[in-house]
């Protein structure tokens, strides 16, 4: 019968309309009609979406305890592996071009990530042998221009290990386990650990 399909369609939208009001839901229930889906959107600045723990945005650099105790040794593996090549690293060196060391490790003098190029693929995290780079879930970083404001340097990228623990507890636990295992492996021959050259 012509027209029935049209009316059925109208019934669907009306039901959804009524179902968005609390009183409407009561009415729908009273009439034994299937409930509508209700309001599905969230009012953004007031309520924020709960992201999954694994939610990833842009990478950050992890430090232990103090900001000068970076895990990063400026080995530049992530720089090489980054598909869009948005990471730029220079190792801290003295006048004779010898690597400087802090806490027994080399460290980056410059560590820039151009987040306007970064595509949040997480490959840098996967390839880092030192667990020094992790994915942040801070995503409200909109700026008015895409020049220097979106070029994050070392200071902007630094986050503490506690912060990592806080935003991604499960992942941090796995990472810590790996770090502990690694430390245990390299601990017994104490002098060897010190002489291990930073991965080139």
């Amino acid at each position: 019968m012509i027209g029935v399909g049209v009316l059925k369609g109208m019934a669907v939208t009306l039901r959804q309309f009524v179902g968005t009001y609390p009183a409407g839901r009561v009415l729908l229930k009273a009439l034994h009609l299937p409930e509508g889906n209700g309001i599905f959107t969230i009012s953004y600045p007031e309520t924020k979406q709960q992201h999954a723990e694994r939610f990833r945005y842009f990478p950050f650099l992890v430090y232990d305890a103090t900001p000068d105790n970076l895990r990063c040794v400026a080995c530049r593996i992530c720089e090489q592996e980054c598909p869009p090549q948005c990471i730029h690293i220079t190792m801290a060196k003295d006048e004779q071009n010898r690597p400087l060391k802090a806490n027994g490790r080399t460290f980056p003098a410059q560590f820039d990530i151009d987040v306007s190029i970064c595509m949040s693929c997480r490959i840098c995290v996967d390839v880092c042998p030192f667990e020094a780079i992790e994915m942040d879930n801070r995503h409200e970083i909109a700026t008015h221009a895409r020049g220097p404001e979106l070029l994050f340097d070392k200071t902007e990228l630094l986050r503490s290990a506690e912060y990592f623990q806080q935003i991604k507890p499960t992942e941090a636990a796995v990472v810590n386990q790996r770090l502990v295992a690694k430390a245990a492996k390299s601990q017994p021959p104490k002098p060897a650990a010190a002489s291990t050259p930073p991965a080139a």
Binding site: A52, R54, F55, S120, C121, R122, I123, D126
Partner: peptide, 24 residues
């Protein structure tokens, strides 16, 4: 998808040899 891969659309999740990490 976000739960599994960390991203809603740009998942980068399935890898040669399986998936990048097990689902939570």
């Amino acid at each position: 998808f976000e739960m599994a891969s960390g991203s809603r659309m740009m998942c980068n999740y399935i890898r040669p040899g399986g998936v990048r990490e097990d689902v939570p």
